[in-house]
Design a protein around this nucleic acid. Structure first.
Lengths: 343, 343
DNA sequence: CTGAATATTTTACGCGCGTAAAAAATAAAT
DNA sequence: ATTTATTTTTTACGCGCGTAAAATATTCAG
């Protein structure tokens, strides 16, 4: 490698003995040129290390080979995992993923959409903030850019939504908890940022009614994305007031549960299902850390692989269909219960 | 907003009543045009929502206004936090950050460097994987692109390194632990991915010698980035074998400690500093979750704000200096001890 | 070997913007 | 009002690549 430096595709074409339009065709789709030609080009790439100028490549293309990936909050390892899978799949399919995090801020989410527009991406995988999102901005964006929403749905926006079936989360945990002990009280933020939270509360109420049990919803204060701290504060408040309606708590999500478990530990409430325990705690999401809480957290797990995999596949289909589906698709994957020590 | 659609800078210049070269100058640096001109351009931007084509802008520029940000592992919330600060500062300074995660894979790290090269960034903030990094590839990259390393140093590469002073972490925890109880044994991976781990072990040995105490290093098996699981397995092994040389354990980092605490809980070892406790556990990093372990984790905290802030400032200085410093800079920030319940 | 089908080369133009140089306009200072 | 310094306009070219059309070459069946 590393003979003389190749400046542009013209030079590269001449040293590789192929015409520039054919080289251009190759870089757009390697399978579109004859196998022998492809081999010669690839040998020359190996030898000279040439890569076309991506800016020049993209300036005339109406849509590029870029895929935008937007998540609401990167400091949540849940999204870190999702992003890893998505990125790999995009690269394998010959796209260049660009990653953005709103970091919990609606302003930043709007700015990201602006930036994305000028990236002229072939498509976007977008997990919105939820309640705080600027709906109008997102709607306008989705009209111009082929977008698949994931994780958090906003009714009617984007060409498709891929996420988890909140009802399946809650029905499994509620059923399990009421079968094996006292029925659960539901522990959540009063003003949750994420629309999944509302679906989960409704599913809880619905399940309790169906089972003929009395529901208890514990709504705690706090806004923002520091769920662990909110869960801990709310937990301390409830525990110190002795305001527990039952000895079983079902948290809306694992990050709240992590905070609650910390509050239980601090106040000397033993959590678990043994006879010596004071209360049971369960939750939803199968957060990467839920295995390491004390006690380890019984939770309902996302079908991580399918949610991220199907999001990507849906986006690829959308791109191939020219950016529009006849009807908006919604795909929900079921959760599965993970029984650990906390309940 | 939203009169007729502006197709390019030519059209935009004509509707805003300014010549195209001046408009171009404005977008390159708004302060480089007269205030009245700037106001007219900005009014027109507001009215027509025009944004220049970034691909066309960048294709001729030798270096763009992009800044590459590379982290080793996004599912670690530590990096999520760092990234948030870095992104904000870059945007404020008029740069466009592009975020990449190696996801623990050296191959992916190499691919990212390739991608970055073709992005022609003004500069790169790079937290390498560490031991597994392809040193030759990184060295070649740093010769071509102005790069500031952070978090994890690789001797001699990049124009600067900004990180935490591992000695200051360990000296504070070791001093505190030996002052308030039995001296600590050091708990770490046998083959740590990150070079900071080696510095910490050496600092531990050094401190113990200085204090005239006998050192104990517990090296556990396991490779990869699933530190919690590695810490838990290693912890279970040691606890079940009753192989603890002392009742105080100092973990190399918080993620190992999270796993170890989980092992302690499972095996019924009570952690904390009370008389009823079996052992003390402390650690380093002040991981975002260390506040919520059970018990909450005594640890030494990175100076997050300074590490990320100074990384960005150093890169800006580097860019202004034309991409080269006379001598490689190394800046280390001290840790501060955070006393919580575990030790 | 021939013809049809497919792939490549030649030629040529355009995209949206950067940027250089000279001319013209504007602002600031005397 | 005049000079001087600064800013803007005019004019013009080039960057690296996409891509269309026509000419030419290669492959493959039969």
């Amino acid at each position: 490698m590393g003979e003389r430096k190749i400046r542009n595709m013209e030079e590269f074409a001449s040293v590789s003995g192929i015409s520039r339009p054919t080289v251009s065709k190759y870089f757009h789709d390697p399978t579109s040129v004859r196998a022998t030609t492809r081999a010669r080009i690839e040998a020359a790439i190996e030898q000279y290390g040439y890569r076309p100028n991506i800016y020049a490549m993209n300036q005339n293309r109406e849509l590029t080979k870029n895929i935008g990936v937007v998540v609401p909050y990167l400091a949540d390892p849940f999204f870190g995992e999702i992003v890893r899978v998505i990125e790999r799949r995009c690269i394998e399919a010959g796209f260049s993923p660009s990653l953005f995090s709103s970091h919990g801020s609606p302003e930043q989410e709007r700015d990201i959409l602006d930036t994305l527009r000028s990236l002229k991406p072939a498509g976007v995988l977008f997990a919105p903030l939820g309640r705080l999102s600027d709906k109008a901005a997102i709607e306008a964006f989705c009209r111009n850019v082929p977008t698949v929403l994931f994780d958090s749905n906003i009714e009617g926006m984007g060409e498709a939504f891929v996420g988890s079936d909140n009802y399946s989360f809650v029905s499994q945990t509620v059923e399990y908890l009421s079968r094996t002990g006292d029925p659960a009280a539901f522990f959540e933020m009063k003003f949750p940022a994420n629309p999944n939270a509302n679906k989960r509360r409704r599913a809880y109420l619905d399940m309790m009614e169906r089972l003929g049990l009395e529901p208890h919803v514990l709504q705690i204060e706090g806004t923002g994305w520091a769920f662990e701290e909110i869960g801990r504060k709310g937990g301390l408040d409830i525990l110190n007031r002795g305001a527990l309606p039952t000895d079983t708590i079902l948290c809306s999500n694992d990050r709240l549960a992590i905070g609650l478990l910390s509050a239980c530990y601090e106040t000397g409430h033993k959590v678990g299902r043994g006879p010596e325990c004071d209360l049971r705690v369960a939750s939803h999401d199968d957060h990467p850390f839920s295995r390491y809480t004390c006690p380890s957290l019984t939770t309902a797990a996302h079908d991580y692989a399918n949610v991220s995999g199907h999001s990507v596949e849906t986006l690829f289909r959308l791109i191939e269909s020219g950016g529009r589906f006849e009807a908006r698709e919604e795909t929900l994957f079921s959760a599965h219960l993970i029984m650990r020590a906390s309940a």
